[in-house]
Design a binder for these strands. Structure first.
Lengths: 109, 109
DNA sequence: TCATTATATCAATCTATATTGATAGATTAG
DNA sequence: CTAATCTATCAATATAGATTGATATAATGA
């Protein structure tokens, strides 16, 4: 049984559309995509992230905050070097959002 | 055999990153997502699109142009009512880009 | 203690692009 | 032919958010 189109008021699919819209907004930024990509290699401190991407430190911090607030990455303090904050990708969250987006794009095609 | 991370210079994965970045830019717009969603129902004229979405006609035309220039939708002239331009989704293109994006997001997770 | 390193935050600026308003061209109806 | 309809385009404005610059905090090392 098909839903009403997601573009119309009161559609159940509208929930998916909003979820997808929010996610796309987060990944619509090259540096954030690069961060997600870099974190596939494993967890990384901020200093390695901004140096690797070739962007200023505060810009990296900003994008990391956006990604973390949305739940796509996690952070913890390094035990040995307490100054460093280590970021890692939240694989479950990424998988969940990626699946929603993919379903939205290819459903009914 | 793993590639270099896509965030670094000269990576083969960088091609994917650029492709993904361009695609995400296109779908990072609620009205465009709604248009893609609406076109799942079948091909539609501009007048039905802007009325259904509740946006001005010229705004719909603008977003349709963006989607068409990128290749996600096609258009043709209506045979019966020659004034109308009928838009339809390019399913192959959408599938292709959706697949690239999904691969990018979930690879190596 | 003092200097250095790592990170985060805030305010200001810059930039891309969504939106609006006006209008033109093409088609059809009367 | 004239008016109405459908679509596209252009210029102007509005706006979201990326980037930068300055600075604060905390941890470490000398």
């Amino acid at each position: 049984m098909k839903n009403a189109p997601c573009c119309q008021k009161g559609s159940r699919s509208k929930v998916d559309l909003e979820k997808v819209t929010e996610f796309v907004k987060i990944i619509n930024e090259p540096n954030r995509l690069k961060i997600l990509c870099f974190l596939r290699e494993g967890e990384q401190c901020v200093c390695d992230i901004w140096k690797t991407l070739g962007i200023p430190q505060n810009l990296a911090s900003h994008h990391l905050k956006v990604l973390k607030d949305f739940g796509l990455i996690d952070s913890r303090q390094n035990k040995e070097e307490g100054r460093k904050i280590i970021y890692s990708s939240n694989k479950e969250a990424i998988k969940k959002y990626a699946e929603s987006l993919n379903n939205f794009l290819i459903s009914n095609l």
